[in-house]
Design a protein around this nucleic acid. Structure first.
Lengths: 340, 340
DNA sequence: CTGAAAGCGCTTACAG
DNA sequence: CTGAAAGCGCTTACAG
């Protein structure tokens, strides 16, 4: 590997000048700059990142932790983001280092990664309300960016969707179709997104003078959603519309509706929030699923850029974005049934 | 962050001695060593990896490339290994850096990662026959370890299963059950594992004096497997047993068998090789699937250790392991039908 | 516009 | 058994 010294030796220049030429310092003469650049290209010079990092104090690496389940599998949503983040970070000359959280103390993998002393910051995802990882990294003074937010008014860089608006948009649309009994089949309430969706659901239902008691929170398995939907459908005042936290949940709900001998959207409307995961595509449902849509992958580039910008000195206040989601109406929703 | 200098200053020792004490050099006196260790602990000293790396020339980081499909999703088998590898590498003080292969030149992401000059080596998976990545890394002189092998007699560290034996074990078992017409529903032939399975299949069939013409290679989607099995079942001399390259393929084959009005294992036996992926569990089939089994995850620790050992100077010849697979007989295989 | 020098935090021959 | 010194490859005040 060619070094600055090699280039300097060829041209009779000091490493200092070569360094400045290559890094675009304005005081270097055009003639010198061209010669240096040309020699660097010819020698295939690549700056030694390790040396740069030692002197700048930055490592050019950020960390991310995969949480794996007891069966050693990880969340589909994590991997969905992982590839996008890696690509986006790479465009900013930053590498992504991975660690695993085997369960237990959620802070431990971050602590261990920090002890290695090689990371500039972290990307966190899937926050729970008042996330202990946020508390830890903040008190350590380590920069990080969060996908979503773990509290109402975050003081760290974050990028996410307006989860209250997800519920509000869904409820508004269904209410305008005449639905009065609307159910929310939500994720686990400890997850910040689920808490926000529930809150948004309650507020929206209240605005329409509807009873918000048909909300069910829990694990986002298809089978769980199926069971919870069956329970609601067995009630005297069964819902005529379901708002689902994910497309997987919607699949369970649709199955339950049909097992009750009801039709979608004739008897029951079903809609979901769609993260655009490749394995459960809203458009492949029959009928195609009405959704609020916000592809997880769309968050990757903003998150990567925010973190790198933050490391470069941009204050957290300037790096907080809450996106609105898109409403896509398809065949799975329709007017409330007569006399429903 | 405390440095060697800080520790030395506290104790009136040179950084050289402190360094030696901390790194377990034998010449340091016990008394000094204890004092240094104690002070290091008290100060919360963590070696600066970047500095260590600059001087040793090693980075303590290895790379891995995710190949993502046009729909931006990645292979389940990749993620299955990713978490296991990260954990195993971490135990050896090594970090895993990720990059993505967006399609196109398979060598490009490796080249780009190398240009950053921060990686000691690579872990490769899913080799194709005579893999160009192997050629590239070899000519660059970069250490790597391969899951599986891309040629018959590899000269690099590798860990994998005996794919020819996978086929042989399967065919032997089915032949002993009286099956004469055995089909192989294989993966894409450009993948080294698929080529090895096919070769093993042909050899085993020949040993039993059976015609090995019922082999079909192709993409490992459930739907493709379904189609290919239907074609074979429609023939006059339809197979009475199927050896499947994966559990996903087995699912497609079983569906085809049933759509033909046939039963498993009464009319047709079905077995598969099982990588123990969490999403398609052989035991959840009905009837439970007979398999040759070799969990992908079992490869993670050996691969991680092999790479780190190789970086530490262990020659490639000492780091080549081909594992035998386990045969687990369950309900999806049985005697060949009478007159079949 | 360019160079000599110091320094980032460590490791490791070389002396003693 | 310990220290002084050189050096890994870079960046960046400080001079000139």
């Amino acid at each position: 590997m060619a070094t600055l010294k090699d280039i300097g030796a060829e041209l009779g220049l000091s490493v200092a000048t070569v360094s400045r030429a290559l890094n675009g310092f304005p005081e270097v003469s055009l003639k010198t700059r061209t010669k240096v650049q040309e020699t660097a290209d010819r020698l295939g010079y690549r700056p030694n990142r390790v040396a740069q990092r030692l002197v700048t104090g930055r490592s050019g690496m950020v960390g991310m932790v995969v949480k794996i389940k007891p069966d050693m599998s990880a969340d589909q949503t994590f991997f969905e983001m992982l590839t996008g983040l890696t690509a986006a970070l790479s465009a900013r000359e930053t590498d992504l280092v991975l660690a695993v959280d085997q369960g237990g103390d959620p802070v431990l993998p971050y602590r261990k990664l920090l002890e290695r002393g090689i990371l500039d910051g972290f990307i966190l995802n899937a926050p729970v309300t008042d996330d202990p990882r946020v508390t830890f990294l903040r008190e350590q003074g380590i920069p990080f960016v969060l996908h979503g937010r773990d509290r109402a008014t975050p003081d760290y860089p974050n990028f996410g969707i307006d989860n209250a608006a997800v519920s509000a948009t869904s409820v508004d649309m269904l209410a305008h179709l005449g639905h009065r009994r609307i159910a929310l089949i939500n994720g686990e309430l400890r997850h910040a997104y689920a808490a926000e969706r529930l809150e948004g659901f309650r507020a929206a239902m209240a605005r329409h003078d509807l009873a918000p008691d048909s909300a069910r929170n829990g694990a986002t398995f298809e089978s769980h959603a199926y069971t919870r939907a069956l329970e609601l459908l067995a009630q005297a005042d069964a819902p005529t519309a379901f708002v689902c936290a994910s497309t997987v949940i919607a699949a369970g709900v649709m199955r339950a509706v049909r097992d009750r001998g009801l039709s979608v959207p004739g008897d029951v409307s079903v809609m979901a929030h769609d993260d655009a995961l490749p394995l459960t595509r809203a458009i492949s449902f029959d009928p195609a699923l009405t959704v609020t849509r916000a592809p997880l992958r769309d968050a990757c580039e903003p998150l990567a850029n925010m973190l790198v910008d933050h490391l470069g000195g941009v204050p957290a206040e300037a790096l907080q974005v809450m996106m609105d989601v898109e409403l896509i109406v398809r065949g799975s929703t329709g007017p409330a049934p007569k006399g429903g």
